[in-house]
Design a protein around this nucleic acid. Structure first.
Lengths: 261, 261
DNA sequence: AAGTCTGTGTGTCGCTGTAACACAATGTAA
DNA sequence: TTACATTGTGTTACAGCGACACACAGACTT
């Protein structure tokens, strides 16, 4: 975990008035991926009223597009707009809702949760994953959290409810879609080196790739611009910097790049 | 369209009591694929109170797993159990709900739809696609339909609401997952010939494949058992019959077969 | 009964993409 | 200046695939 920000408490009013404004029994959860220090990171929230971490999520307004709700979550947790976002699965098991936890949360903000309170019913959640540039994101907690931080994928703790499962499924989807989606473009900064791009692929796939074949294959796609500059201050031969050729990238993704690493 | 069955009208009670029993604002829709006469088919319902066809769908009980609701729909429309079923997308645009249509439906069964009636609110729907053996399925309409029939994929009419879109997305998903899912096993009968399997692939992919390369590739997977018998009564050399080796099939699908036709 | 027709089973050949590895180039540190 | 680590590029062997040739089997024609 890296950076955290405090935020004011508005949880009471949201939980109280939620029933009027939100689509009942529906939420969105976002698995926000970033890449830093050659590691794949996920943005998590530390809940105020339970000693557990959780995925960023939110509720859907009554006349709001579900995807728009995910965009709201994303923007408010990272400060970024125009984020790469994909819906990947909807989690609809009745047992996934933890009424006990939610009841405690209500009580902890001084509410007396009557039976049938909107927050105590069973929730279906729509899962989205997002790819963001780690260095431009500014993690920010929501109303019911005390911290918001990047976690290394290797060190994810036990999360609340079924959030470990939701995260796991997001990762599987990411791996499958690695060649169909502009993943590098969204997770890396404007300029990057070939080794950096390779680390990204290796981290997502969880296996090592041959340096030389990787380079050839990537360049073969014709979606990268080699820049004039080279990386500075490295204790060895300085690698070239590249940027994505967005036009060609988009065209190539029409068909999907190629398959099979 | 092929076979149709009538069914008794219980729509009134369902629409009346629905609010008590169902998870609010949530439905499932199923794109049920079958394969017959070298054509990919989809099971559609003719609505009673509108001159349009629709995808089979239903509502989710308050403590029911969403997937279970899809299974219910599937079983009651086809008479089959143990159906191959995959969730593929959740449709959450506010504009997708057609309040006007639903109001008319309520009025047509003699109900006076008050504002805020559960059936008039906005619905999110979870899309599933299913693969069934055409010859064993027995299409049966639901309470709000007067007919249930297989439609050729090439001849799909204008459907209600956003159902054309939902169907289109299912087809795209099916194409993408052709090599990751046991598609042949579910859409074909127990015994089948290589040309039949090839027609199935060609129909799903929407393009022709080379007969000889297809055969070699398929056999190369090692997931087919060549039977002793051959197809009878054909006006040319009789092709072998095959069955799926479920054990090997399952193992091969762990990694995904191969990619790219 | 022989020939024709249609569709199936198997083989071959060239191309492409991939994996595995060799070697030269470059910049920092000793 | 030398050693070292890492990058850029080349080579080679192999597997998979697309395109095609040819032989085979059953039914139909004449």
């Amino acid at each position: 975990m890296e950076t955290t920000y405090p935020v004011e408490d508005k949880v009471g009013s949201m939980l109280q008035k939620g029933g009027e404004h939100f689509h009942p029994g529906l939420s969105v959860d976002c698995v926000i991926f970033g890449f830093h220090d050659n590691q794949l990171k996920v943005l998590l929230l530390k809940m105020k009223h339970a000693d557990k971490w959780a995925l960023p999520g939110g509720f859907v307004y009554k006349e709001e597009d579900v995807e728009h709700a995910a965009v709201r979550v994303l923007e408010s947790r990272t400060g970024l707009s125009d984020i790469f976002l994909r819906q990947y699965h909807t989690f609809g098991a009745p047992a996934r809702s933890d009424r006990k936890l939610n009841r405690e949360l209500l009580e902890s903000v001084g509410m007396e949760p009557h039976e049938g309170h909107w927050f105590l019913q069973r929730f279906i959640t729509v899962g989205y994953y997002a790819l963001v540039d780690f260095s431009s994101a500014v993690p920010r907690p929501d109303e019911i959290s005390e911290a918001c931080a990047w976690w290394d994928l290797q060190e994810i703790p036990l999360l609340t409810m079924d959030h470990n499962h939701i995260l796991q499924k997001a990762l599987e989807t990411l791996r499958k879609q690695l060649n169909d989606q502009p993943i590098g473009y969204n997770l890396l900064p404007e300029k990057f080196t070939m080794p950096e791009l390779q680390r990204l692929y290796e981290t997502i796939l969880g296996k090592r790739l041959d340096r030389r074949n990787f380079q050839r294959k990537m360049l073969g796609y014709g979606i990268l611009n080699r820049l004039e500059e080279r990386k500075q201050g490295v204790a060895h031969k300085a690698p070239f910097l590249y940027s994505f050729n967005q036009e060609r990238y988009g065209a190539a993704l029409q068909d999907g790049l190629q398959q099979g690493w």
